[in-house]
Design a protein around this nucleic acid. Sequence first.
RNA 1: GCACCCGUAGCUCAAUUGGAUAGAGCAUCUGACUACGGAUCAGAAGGUUUUAGGUUCAAAUCCUAACGGGUGCGCCA
Length: 569
Amino acid sequence: MSVSLADHLTAILRRVLALPNVSVTPAADTRFGDYQTNAAMALAKERKTNPRALAAEMVAQLSADAELATLSEPPTIAGPGFINFTLKPGHLADRVAALLADDRLGVPQVEKPQRIAVDFSSPNIAKPMHVGHLRSTLIGDCLVRVARFLGHTVITDNHLGDWGTQFGKVIHGWKAFLDRGQLEADAINELVRVYIAADAAAKADAAVADLCRQELTKLQAGDPENMGIWRECVRLSLEELNRTYARLGIQFDYVYGESHYNAALPGVVERLLAAGIARESDGAICVFFEDHPRLADAPAIVRKKDGGFNYTTSDIATAELRVQEWKCDQMWCVVGAPQSRHFEALNVILERMGLGAQITHIPFGSILGPDRKIMRTRSGDNVSLRELLDEAEERAAAPIAERNPELPLAERAEIARVIGLGAVKYAELSQHRLTDYIFDWDRMLAFQGNTAPYLQNAYVRIRSIFRKLDGAWSAPAALGLTEPAEKNLAKKLAQFAEAVPSVLDDFRPNLLANYLYELADAFHGFYESCPVLKAEGAARETRLALCEATARVLRGGLGLMGIGVPERM
RNA sequence: GCACCCGUAGCUCAAUUGGAUAGAGCAUCUGACUACGGAUCAGAAGGUUUUAGGUUCAAAUCCUAACGGGUGCGCCA
């Protein structure tokens, strides 16, 4: 079982000082060393002593430790009481050698694997996926990949919006306006068209609005004709959704839409009433939160006065399934920030019910257009995800054609696909999830800066080196690091073991993106100052090993974000 | 009105969750130009972290208030 540098140093620190809560972190400023601890300052405050004097005592104990001496030079004190560790080149070399021999690239598995339901993407039926679904879909997919890689058992579930009041209008529109030919050609657009037509008609004519409500009531009562139309809508929508997910390389274990829980909803409400958690108010069944300052003025409605249920009820039923049948320890929901209040209320209810697990809401901000408003087309519509992905591939194709015109057209198209999709995914995942960000084609497809093409290019340059090699190459058993750029790159490679787990600390894929960018940056610095193929003997083998390790970490790290790497570009 | 999120270089974003002199990329300027893919690298310049207080060895980060922006507030999800 491997252990990261930070964890290893932390373990030594705790053992030597007999302090269970201190820790070692990567140095904020590498001029002082590679890792640091502020244990002396924290403890000095507690004991009301001088932090530098305390640091001196700690350093004396640490310097005598044999295990520490295998990985670090004797620690030093700086500033108000920081203790700094400088890693020994020999240890870093061993780490890179170990990484090359390890399918997991040195990343340890979690000690306590959890069973986690992850709910993400959640598009609506009878509507196209649009740019607004991008964040949930990509963040969710990345978190799932990372969690699985770290050893958790993850059950993915796409909680489709396949039930609700809008189906009254869809069904009326289907009956009144459907064009079968258009439905064959492009089902989703036709479903949207008939919905819009029905919506307009309902607004203009109260009788039509009433008709829509009747269609909904019939559907909810299980009317065979309306159920048939609804099933057809779901089937057609899933076909289109699955094309998009296949394109994005995303799979779900379950696609249980809201409708999956319909049968369970009356029972949920009955139990809430019986337990005294819910009560009647204005004809509706509500849960009140008088003792809860943020929720006090907004009860959750679990049954409307017309007898219908809404999303709070079906989310309760969903949580029950995930905990009671799937035996999940955790439930993650990747859903936009505006719904945070809903999840807070939901968790209060789940706690009162004694379910034994809470929902972890993983919120995110909005994608904005160039005008800093929520991204829309010129006519004010949502931007279709399919068209957006098409455009990404088209835009990625141009520089490849310019740079590598000799490549066969099919290969160029495949490269454009990998780069275009990668650019869109990376632009999303390299962003702090809570910030609203501006969708900018030129920036995400640029080959400079913190972009997917920059990282992919670093990988391509390495592959180019190995293509120039005659015959197969296998990694040497031992490396010798001499140049600062070599040591810097080796340290960065070893820190993959810290970067991956950090993603789950606060559900932050951008920490992995930051790491990969820094790795590519360290590689480019090394590449400039340390010739690989022109070097000889052990130096050449060491440098090839650093190249190979960098390529594997780049490929593995991007893979955790669902991003591929081309061999040429 | 109340609640939540946010405010960092000209622009777009980071900041290991309370640590050292707040970092990158664009754009600007100076170098490296027969180059293992220059789609690169080295460097310069750019900041009172919206403002005013407070907490402490230490604050972009925590607390209070103001200002500015976004979102949400009983039968949609």
